[in-house]
């Protein structure tokens, strides 16, 4: 990254290009400054910690959403998967040792994502349709397995997870650290790994990818499976925060995740988008809710403001990239 950064800044008009490329970062910074100016509670560590905790779950599934969107697909199932997998994790944590419970939950998440992946990659089903189906199936299964009510953690493993999820290391909430690590991993994979390069290639021109000898189906399958595994990770985190797994968790999170990816400047047609910008998208969305809460704006007007800011952010990107 140092190399390309240096190149960008030293080329003619480089700084301007840099600003355009990372415009979401600057939207984010502007929002932070704005928030700090209008609320004196904003820059307290309690509030920042709270903000980071709130965005971590959606943040993790947003990264999964990003890699699916990069291939030109979409994954509507992630919100429901969070619910089903949170319930699954809560059941498992009461049954088996913690590491096994974590591992199994992630494996189940990967497998559920594989169903979408199989339908999209090998059965040529439209991503919207395949994941829409999985979305309702997962939500239904969540209610069936939990019998409609939250499953609480009862074991020492559950206590450990709940401690982990609610504490901080060096002032940063542990779950935010998990989220940031996933963002960094995604950044590295998308920039420096063949996997990332190929999914971007597939999203930008599937036929050309196929004729370049790329295993298009394999990669399309994998992105949904990974999205499922990331949904499992998010599920473990949100369940641990509240000490329970509920079938009502993750309600319409898939839409927030899509919003975050889009605010991050990714193209829904595939081929364009970065992890750092998706992180910014997640933070921007979180920041908007946070500041509106601090200003005591009731929740319904909040939704209106949020929608308006999404439109504004995306329009601003257009304007800047012209």
């Amino acid at each position: 990254m140092a190399l390309t950064l240096k190149e960008q800044l030293s080329s003619p008009g480089g700084i301007l290009k840099f600003l355009v490329k990372y415009n979401t970062v600057f939207i984010f910074i502007l929002l932070v400054i704005f928030s700090a100016l209008i609320s004196d509670v904003f820059f307290t560590s309690a509030n920042i910690t709270n903000l980071l905790k709130q965005v971590s779950g959606i943040g993790i599934i947003s990264i999964g959403m990003l890699i699916v969107i990069l291939t030109g697909g979409i994954d509507l199932s992630v919100g429901s998967l969070v619910a089903l997998l949170a319930v699954t994790f809560a059941i498992l944590v009461n049954l088996v040792v913690l590491p096994l419970a974590i591992l199994l939950t992630i494996v189940i998440g990967f497998s559920l994502g594989s169903i979408s992946g199989y339908l999209v990659a090998y059965q040529k089903m439209a991503p919207f349709v395949a994941t829409l189906a999985l979305m309702t199936i997962a939500r239904g299964l969540g209610f069936i397995y939990s019998k409609g009510s939250p499953v609480t953690f009862k074991t020492a493993g559950g206590v450990f997870m709940s401690d982990f999820a609610n504490n901080s290391t060096l002032g940063v909430p542990n779950i935010a650290i998990v989220f940031f690590l996933i963002v960094i991993a995604a950044m590295v994979m998308l920039r420096y790994n063949v996997f990332g390069r190929l999914i971007i290639a597939i999203g930008s021109n599937e036929e050309a990818s196929r004729l370049s000898g790329i295993k298009v189906n394999k990669y399309k399958f994998l992105v949904y499976a990974i999205s499922g595994a990331l949904a499992a990770t998010a599920a473990i985190i949100v369940a641990s925060r509240t000490n329970l797994g509920s079938p009502n968790m993750g309600m319409s999170w898939e839409l927030d995740a899509i919003a975050a990816v889009v605010i991050g400047g990714a193209s829904l047609n595939g081929g364009r988008g970065t992890a750092i910008n998706t992180l910014m998208g997640v933070l921007i969305l979180g920041l908007i809710s946070n500041i509106l809460n601090l200003l005591n704006v009731p929740s319904y007007p909040q939704q209106v403001v949020k929608g308006a800011i999404i439109i504004f952010a995306v329009l601003l990107q257009r304007f800047e990239s012209k």
Partner: peptide, 17 residues
């Protein structure tokens, strides 16, 4: 349609194989 990746850089196009 089938040869190049129009929205990607020259570098990303060439490296793909």
């Amino acid at each position: 349609e089938e040869g190049v990746f129009l929205p990607l850089s020259i570098r990303r196009n060439i490296s793909v194989t």
